[in-house]
Amino acid sequence: MSRSTAGTDPKKGIVNPPSGNPVTAAVKKPYPFWLGGVAASIAASITHPLDLTKVRLQTSGDKGMIKSIQKTVAANGVRGLFDGLTGTLLRQMTYSMMRFAVYDWAKEAVHTEPGPPPAYKMALAGSIAGGVAGIIGNPAELMMVRMQADKAKPPERRYNYRNSVQGLYRMTREEGFSSWTRGIVPNAARAVLMNMSQLASYDWFKGELIRRKVMEDGPVLHFVASLGAGTVATTVCSPADVLKSRIMNAHGPGSSSTLAVIRTSLANEGPMFMFKGWVPAWTRLQPTTILIFLTLEQLKKGVDRYREAGGTLL
Rank of each mutant, 00 (worst) to 15 (best):
S197L: 01
V165R: 10
R190W: 13
C237W: 04
M65W: 07
M93T: 11
A125L: 04
A75H: 08
L285D: 12
S179V: 06
L124T: 10
I69W: 01
T288Q: 14
I184N: 05
Y95M: 13
R190V: 02
G84K: 01
R190L: 14
I66M: 14
S68Y: 00
V224Y: 11
R3H: 15
H222K: 05
D217K: 06
S60N: 12
I42W: 07
Y159F: 12
P139R: 04
K71Y: 05
E308M: 10
P287G: 06
A26C: 03
A267E: 15
P49L: 09
S19L: 13
G183Y: 06
G61W: 05
D9W: 02
G254M: 03
K54E: 11
L313T: 02
D83V: 02
K12C: 10
S45A: 14
A149H: 05
F223Y: 07
D9E: 02
M122K: 11
Q70N: 13
L90Y: 14
K121N: 04
V132P: 04
K11E: 15
A39Q: 09
T258R: 09
T8E: 03
R246V: 02
H251G: 00
V102I: 14
G115M: 08
P271Q: 01
R3P: 04
P18W: 07
I290Q: 03
L142T: 07
E113S: 14
A129I: 04
K213C: 00
T59A: 06
Q58K: 09
Y95W: 14
A225V: 03
L142E: 06
W204E: 13
R307F: 10
S178H: 13
P280L: 11
M215H: 12
L296F: 08
F100H: 10
A44G: 07
T47S: 11
R146C: 10
S127P: 10
K67Q: 14
M248W: 02
M196G: 09
S4W: 09
K276R: 15
E141S: 12
M98F: 14
Q58I: 10
E269A: 08
A250H: 04
E216N: 02
T264L: 00
Q286N: 11
V192H: 01
S45I: 09
R182K: 15
K206N: 09
K151D: 14
M147P: 07
L314S: 00
A140D: 01
Q92M: 14
N187C: 10
V15M: 11
S178F: 11
G126K: 03
A133R: 03
T53Q: 05
I69P: 01
K206V: 02
R91S: 10
R170T: 08
